[in-house]
Lab assay of single mutants.
Amino acid sequence: SEHYTFDGEEQAIRFMRDMEAKNLKYELQIHNGKYIIQVD
């Protein structure tokens, strides 16, 4: 699995939509205002 970190919500949402379009599962965590997305 890989981790991707985003500072902004818009970037994170765009990335998650992209993952959904590719049928990839992901998990979102928010730490200290950063959006951390783990992709299986």
Rank of each mutant, 00 (worst) to 15 (best):
Q29C: 11
E20Q: 07
V39Q: 03
Y4I: 07
H3W: 15
L24R: 10
R14W: 10
F15R: 00
E10R: 04
E27C: 11
S1H: 12
E20V: 05
R17L: 13
K22M: 13
Q29R: 13
Y26Q: 01
A21C: 07
H3I: 15
Y26D: 00
E2W: 15
Q11G: 08
A12Q: 00
D18S: 07
K34S: 06
Y26M: 06
E10M: 06
S1I: 14
Y4F: 11
G8I: 14
I37G: 01
A12P: 00
R17K: 14
K22N: 09
Q11N: 08
I36W: 07
Q38E: 08
Y4M: 04
Y4S: 02
A21Q: 10
T5L: 09
L24N: 04
Y35K: 00
N32H: 08
E2H: 14
D18Y: 12
E9N: 03
E27T: 15
E10I: 06
E10V: 06
L24V: 12
E27Y: 12
M16Y: 02
Y4Q: 03
G33Q: 04
E2A: 13
G33Y: 03
R14F: 06
N32F: 06
F15S: 01
A12S: 02
Q29D: 05
E9T: 04
K34P: 00
Y26E: 00
S1Q: 12
S1G: 12
K22D: 04
E2M: 15
D18I: 10
H31L: 13
S1W: 14
Y35W: 14
D18T: 06
M19Q: 05
L24E: 05
L28G: 01
V39K: 03
D18A: 11
L28F: 11
E27S: 14
K25F: 08
D7I: 07
E10N: 04
E20S: 06
D40A: 12
R14V: 10
I37P: 00
R14N: 12
L24I: 14
S1V: 14
G8K: 14
E10G: 05
T5D: 04
F15N: 01
L24G: 03
A21M: 11
G8R: 13
L28K: 02
Y26W: 07
D7L: 08
I13G: 05
G8P: 01
I30Q: 05
T5A: 08
E27H: 13
K34V: 12
V39H: 03
A12L: 05
K22H: 09
Q38Y: 15
M19P: 01
R17W: 09
L24Y: 08
E2N: 14
I36D: 03
V39D: 01
L24Q: 08
H3N: 10
G8N: 15
I37L: 06
T5F: 11
V39G: 02
I13V: 10
I13W: 07
E27F: 13
M19T: 04
L28A: 04
T5W: 11
Q38P: 01
Y26A: 11
K25E: 06
F15I: 02
F6Y: 02
R17G: 06
L28E: 01
M19Y: 03
G8V: 14
F15A: 05
H3A: 12
V39T: 05
H3K: 13
E10K: 05
A12Y: 05
Y4C: 07
E2V: 15
H3Q: 13
Q38T: 15
A12F: 05
L24P: 01
